[in-house]
Computed example of a mutant assay.
Amino acid sequence: MAETSAVSATGLTLPVWVAAAARAAVLVLQGGAAPASVELRIPGEQASRSVPVWAAARLEDGTQALAITVCDPGRGLDLTRGLEIWVRAARTSAPGPGFQVTAGAGVGRHVQDGGLCISGFARELLDLNLTDLLTVESALELEVVLPRGQELALRTSNAAFGVVDGLALIGTQAEVQTSASPDQLEMLLAQLTELASQSGFAGQLTLVIGENGMDLAHQLGLSQQQPVLKAGNWIGPVLVAAAEAGVRELLLLGYHGKLIKLAGGIFHTHHHLADARFEVLAALAVQQGLSTERIRPLLQVASLEQAWEWLASQDAGQARALWMSMAGAVEQRSQGYLQRYGCPAMAIGAALFSRDRQLRWAGPEGLRMLGHAGLSLEPLLGGESGGPSLR
């Protein structure tokens, strides 16, 4: 095992705590004593991390074991704080070595196929920390259970991205990035300064809010054409810093349920601070000339995605025009934000994606920037397939 890191086990993402519980469960299943902590190897890190284990025990028949860890995401607002993670390890009839991860109660599943929602980083983390424990006698089944997962998932946007029944096991690194904390903003500004100082920087940047936007930017090939920076919820300060750093063209790429806040002049998008999505939608609908009979139902649904689906079912063209105007309003209000702070000129384009992570709407500047990148929009109307296409 690599040298153990002195870094505290607080501030770690959910996949790390899952991996710790999984390793503890397998250790106990093989006859070891219940560990108070386990040493975890982290992809890309030389030193291992010591992660505490709350409990671990072999079950009655001896072919199963259960281990529990308790998530500590560190400082900042994070709904996984204090979340118990249970992992049940069981021998199967299949020959080893190997293991299969299944979603137990409270763990998110993809609505399309019911499969476990887990990131590549989380899978790699499990592979890295279980390979040395696997035997040829039999493969293992690892069932992950989050007792409060389904309850907590109601406070996330998981359902908007097609994840149901609980929390997704996603994350791209070991340490939590607190998107609403001042420390996170300082780190972002440092990244931006370093990026703009590079000799090959052409003054173009794609700005995303979270992991879904980052993943889509890679899928579209935007990351191969220009740098992509994840802003978290600090959109306003990052826009100002980008303009001052010499960025000439900035593409805002984000989920429509998040970026609509910018259309209402809200430039810190964390839901704990402000949320006026439906009020902004209603104002945009009035500007577009929608009738009261059309606007009222838009304010009675549970999500912006449902508002889109309902209006598209009533009038596809009207729905598309409203959402395209939303993207245009994001561009206009963002420009106004820069002017308020006397920033250098910077073109801002907005491109919005839907819950299936398909690019659906863009403002005038966003359309121009997407066109330069070889991408165009196709509407999602009446059940047609849509999303970005290469020209």
Rank of each mutant, 00 (worst) to 15 (best):
V7W: 14
S8F: 14
A9G: 00
A19P: 00
R23G: 10
G32M: 08
A33V: 13
A33N: 10
A47L: 08
P52H: 07
V53P: 00
W54P: 01
A55P: 12
A56W: 14
L66F: 13
C71T: 14
L79G: 06
A89F: 00
A89Q: 04
P95K: 08
F99V: 07
V101F: 02
G104I: 06
G106Q: 07
D113Q: 03
S119H: 09
E124H: 08
L126Q: 04
L128I: 04
L130P: 05
V136C: 06
A139N: 08
E141A: 15
V145R: 05
P147R: 00
P147M: 00
R148H: 14
Q150F: 11
L152E: 09
L154W: 09
R155H: 11
T156D: 05
A159I: 10
A159Q: 15
A159V: 11
G162W: 01
Q173E: 10
D183M: 04
L185D: 06
E186R: 15
S197W: 01
G200I: 01
G203Q: 02
Q204T: 15
Q204A: 15
I209S: 08
I209H: 12
I209L: 09
N212T: 15
G213E: 03
L216A: 05
A217R: 03
G221K: 02
L222H: 13
P237Y: 00
A243S: 14
E244M: 14
L251H: 05
G254W: 02
K258S: 07
H268K: 06
L281I: 03
A283W: 00
P297R: 09
S303N: 03
A307L: 02
L311N: 02
S313V: 11
S313M: 05
Q314W: 05
D315K: 03
L322T: 01
L338P: 14
C343H: 03
M346W: 01
I348M: 02
L359N: 07
W361N: 15
E365I: 08
L367T: 06
L367N: 08
H372F: 09
L375R: 12
E378Y: 10
E384S: 12
E384L: 12
G386A: 08
P388F: 13
L390A: 15
